[in-house]
Each structure stands twice: as C-alpha cells, then as structure tokens.
C-alpha cells in the first residue's frame, strides 16, 4: 500500500489524451536513482505511464508554450519552475527474437508546473520531433 501525501498529487484537468477521466497523478521513481519514473493515476490504479526527462537524451529539445497553455498551467508573468516529461513506450518488435525498442514521445510532452502541481499534455504541431524517438542506452 502506497501512501500519497496531498502535496504529491499532480492535477491534470484535461487528463492525458485518450484518458480524460483520470485527472490526478503521482510521480514515482522506477527505482532509486533511476532515470525512469511512473506517472501513476490515482483515479485508476491500473493506469500508469513510464516517463523520462527528455533532456537526458535530447539536450536540444525545446518548444514554446502557447498563451493558453501558460494560462492552463497557471504560469504567471514570466518564468515558473517547469518540468517536461516524455511518455515512454516499450515496443516489442519481434517476440521470438526479443527485439525491443524503447522510445519516447516527443510530440506529446507533459509539462508540469512543479510548485503548482499542475500538468498538461501538449501536442506539438510544426516541430520536427518524433512520437517514437529512440532512447539510447541510459543508465537504469
């Protein structure tokens, strides 16, 4: 049984695309010191996404927030402490060969306003990013 403090809860008022009914999440380390985290839904215990900081393997990853995104994330005049997360997919190309690809969705990043515990998934149009960016060997 996992105990979650109120101040650990991340609110996603629009949910994650495809899962609009799940609006409250918590971020859990995969393992101590791991680069991977689980974005675990508190509204549906079976729903969780692996996420990673995309800057760990794509340091030049950047995009602009629209004024509407800034409003939705409650970013007041100028800077806020933001964290970008990319949803990770593990694709089993060939079950018998055991060929596995681990990718990150850089077209649909999740932006978290850390102090406000508020997040939303964006859709980046007109950016040259892939929804299946291979993640190179990353520790743990």
């Amino acid at each position: 049984m996992l105990e979650i403090r109120e101040d650990q809860i991340i609110q996603m008022p629009l949910g994650i695309i495809g899962f609009p009914e799940c609006k409250r999440y918590v971020l859990l380390e995969h393992r101590k010191g791991s680069s991977f985290f689980w974005l675990q839904s508190l509204d549906n215990e079976t729903l969780a996404f692996v996420v990673i900081n995309p800057l760990l393997f794509k340091p030049d990853y950047t995009f602009e927030l629209s004024s509407e995104d800034r409003k939705a994330l409650d970013i007041q005049n100028g800077q806020a402490e933001l964290q970008t997360l990319a949803i990770v997919n593990i694709i089993h190309r060939d079950k018998e060969e055991g060929c596995i690809e681990i990718t990150a969705n850089l077209l649909g990043p999740i932006v978290v306003n850390i102090p406000k515990r508020l997040a939303r998934q964006l859709i980046l149009e007109n950016y040259p990013y892939s929804h299946r960016q291979p993640i190179p060997q990353i520790k743990k």
Binding site: I17, F49, N89, L107, E125, R132
Partner: peptide, 29 residues
C-alpha cells in the same frame, strides 16, 4: 484544436504506452 492525424497519433501512442508493465521496464533496465 488540432490536425486530426497528429491528435490520433498521440492518442494511439498514449494507449500503447499505458500497456507498458513494470516488468517490461525492469527487464530493460
């Protein structure tokens, strides 16, 4: 408001990602 095809792409990728299990990541890491 989004172009339909990019929205669908993200939706589909999210659905696939939701099926990743702890064990899969554990095996890889």
């Amino acid at each position: 408001v989004h172009r339909e095809e990019i929205y669908q792409k993200i939706l589909e990728e999210n659905r696939l990602a939701a099926q990743v299990e702890w064990k899969h990541l554990q095996d890889l890491t």
